[in-house]
Amino acid sequence: MSTTRRSLLGAALGAPLLGWLTGTAAGAVDGGTDRAGKLGTLSDGWVEVRWTPDAQAQLDRFHAMVDVVAPARMVLDAHGPAVHLPIRSAVGDPSLANPPKAHGDGALDGGVALRTPQGNYRVVNLAGAINDGLGSGRCEVSGAEMGHRSAFRCGITEGKLTADPVPAGKPIKVRLSGVPLRPTQEAVDAYTANFGAHPVTVDTVLAYVTAQGVYTPPPPAAPEQRS
């Protein structure tokens, strides 16, 4: 197996975990010029990705074992395994009044390590964005940069959104839990092209994401000066 194919394998196996990139919808972000005071920020946040039996079946297909890269940590409980990652930085709009409109981008600390018979891979420097319910991401797989365009559909309306009541314009603790991640057709086609037939479709839930943090809204716009 070539180095390129091994790298692709590592990235493909890590895809269900990279889903947390889109899970930053609870307070994640959209970059560009909007960063200049037009979007809020997320602090003291974390993302937890719990992959499903369907995702585990694909990991088993390649005899892959998942571990974490600190400061991420593994969570093992009655609901199965999950990866818990701190949010390094995030900006955006959680759109509390209309969650499907949440948008933004962010980056996480730590990562995951994948051990397979073909080699071991470190998936780190995770970053991603969400817009119109579609998640994209980028990461570094064993030193090689990888990107995922429109990798996941984020079922925000299927999750549970909670927020502490605070006065308007003040920082607010936000939690979005149980959000399902499903691959886009683009992701399914790419996976099929590289690894052959499989049961994963656009309706397959690969992971459930929970995200939490303190969202600080942007300062109010200064009133226009009239001459």
Rank of each mutant, 00 (worst) to 15 (best):
64 A>V: 04
76 L>E: 09
11 A>N: 10
120 N>D: 15
90 A>P: 01
212 Q>H: 14
214 V>M: 09
97 A>G: 08
203 D>M: 03
127 A>R: 10
150 S>Q: 07
189 D>F: 05
177 S>H: 15
58 Q>P: 02
83 V>N: 13
190 A>R: 15
51 W>G: 05
42 L>Y: 00
90 A>C: 03
134 L>H: 06
161 L>K: 03
151 A>C: 04
223 P>A: 09
184 T>C: 11
85 L>N: 05
4 T>L: 12
103 H>I: 01
127 A>D: 02
208 Y>M: 10
66 V>E: 09
86 P>M: 02
57 A>R: 15
55 A>H: 11
174 V>Q: 13
149 R>N: 06
200 V>A: 11
76 L>P: 00
40 G>F: 01
144 A>M: 06
153 R>G: 07
71 P>C: 01
136 S>C: 01
10 G>F: 00
14 G>W: 00
211 A>R: 09
129 A>Y: 04
75 V>G: 00
132 D>L: 13
61 R>L: 07
128 G>T: 01
9 L>M: 13
222 A>L: 13
2 S>Y: 02
173 K>N: 15
130 I>W: 03
1 M>T: 12
39 L>G: 01
213 G>I: 05
195 F>Q: 09
118 Q>Y: 11
46 W>G: 03
206 L>N: 11
18 L>A: 10
189 D>M: 10
105 D>L: 06
75 V>Y: 00
122 R>L: 10
106 G>E: 05
156 I>Q: 11
61 R>H: 12
199 P>S: 10
158 E>R: 15
25 A>E: 07
92 G>I: 01
169 G>R: 04
19 G>M: 07
138 R>C: 09
137 G>N: 04
201 T>S: 14
152 F>M: 14
93 D>S: 06
38 K>F: 09
132 D>K: 12
6 R>N: 12
133 G>V: 03
104 G>K: 09
49 V>Q: 14
202 V>D: 08
172 I>H: 13
136 S>H: 01
122 R>C: 01
134 L>W: 04
44 D>P: 00
189 D>K: 12
112 V>E: 13
52 T>Y: 08
96 L>K: 04
181 L>N: 15
27 G>Q: 06
39 L>T: 12
123 V>C: 09
12 A>K: 02
225 Q>V: 10
182 R>C: 14
188 V>S: 14
27 G>I: 05
132 D>T: 09
108 L>Y: 08
29 V>Y: 07
177 S>D: 15
108 L>Q: 14
12 A>Q: 07
206 L>D: 13
195 F>W: 13
83 V>Y: 10
201 T>M: 05
30 D>P: 00
3 T>A: 13
176 L>I: 12
169 G>H: 05
198 H>G: 11
185 Q>G: 12
171 P>C: 14
182 R>N: 13
170 K>Y: 08
123 V>F: 03
